[in-house]
Computed example of a mutant assay.
Amino acid sequence: MATHTVAKGDLGAHAITLVANTVETTTFGEDLDEITIVSLDGAAPLYITVDGRTPTVGGASTRVMPAAIGAVSIDVPTAGNSVVKVISSGTPTISVQRGR
């Protein structure tokens, strides 16, 4: 499991290359209302959680972003430091950043 920490006021963690079937965790040092995941190369689908659960590839408790270059914004339902967890069956490169 790889981890990144984003200090309060910073925008995000960028150019993260995922390891297949390994959870990538990004923790923001503040309570965010929304996060944005950017798929920089669209190499594989992303499975995402922002509610403390551990994502699994194809898991029913995850949000999915298809294999495409693009971005998805997700409301964060929890209080305290915002934690984003992402997993993929491939090795796409992503950025995790604060939303609005």
Score class of each variant (00 low, 15 high):
7 A>S: 12
64 V>C: 10
90 G>Q: 09
36 T>C: 00
97 Q>K: 15
65 M>N: 01
17 T>A: 13
4 H>S: 14
37 I>A: 08
23 V>F: 04
79 A>K: 09
36 T>R: 08
59 G>S: 11
48 I>R: 06
85 K>M: 06
91 T>Q: 11
92 P>E: 09
74 I>P: 00
62 T>M: 00
11 L>D: 09
40 L>V: 07
5 T>S: 14
47 Y>D: 12
88 S>T: 05
43 A>D: 14
16 I>N: 07
10 D>V: 05
73 S>C: 10
34 E>W: 12
83 V>G: 01
93 T>D: 02
22 T>Y: 05
48 I>M: 09
45 P>L: 05
47 Y>F: 15
26 T>A: 10
82 S>P: 05
57 V>A: 04
22 T>L: 13
81 N>Y: 00
86 V>T: 03
22 T>R: 15
85 K>E: 02
1 M>I: 07
55 P>L: 08
79 A>T: 15
82 S>D: 08
96 V>E: 08
27 T>H: 10
69 I>G: 03
10 D>F: 11
79 A>E: 13
79 A>M: 06
55 P>V: 04
87 I>W: 09
62 T>Y: 04
13 A>D: 12
34 E>P: 02
46 L>G: 14
92 P>Y: 01
55 P>C: 07
7 A>V: 02
59 G>V: 04
61 S>H: 09
86 V>C: 09
61 S>W: 10
74 I>R: 03
23 V>S: 00
53 R>A: 14
55 P>S: 07
66 P>I: 06
26 T>H: 09
88 S>L: 10
64 V>S: 15
18 L>A: 10
81 N>S: 11
40 L>M: 06
95 S>P: 06
81 N>A: 08
98 R>T: 06
1 M>W: 00
54 T>N: 14
50 V>Y: 03
51 D>N: 15
9 G>V: 06
65 M>W: 03
44 A>V: 02
78 T>V: 06
96 V>C: 05
74 I>A: 01
55 P>I: 08
27 T>G: 13
7 A>L: 11
38 V>I: 14
5 T>C: 00
20 A>P: 06
46 L>V: 10
9 G>R: 07
79 A>F: 01
88 S>C: 05
92 P>A: 05
76 V>S: 07
54 T>W: 02
68 A>S: 12
86 V>K: 01
52 G>A: 05
31 D>S: 15
33 D>M: 00
89 S>D: 14
60 A>T: 08
84 V>F: 06
2 A>M: 07
84 V>Y: 04
3 T>S: 15
40 L>H: 01
41 D>N: 09
91 T>W: 00
86 V>D: 11
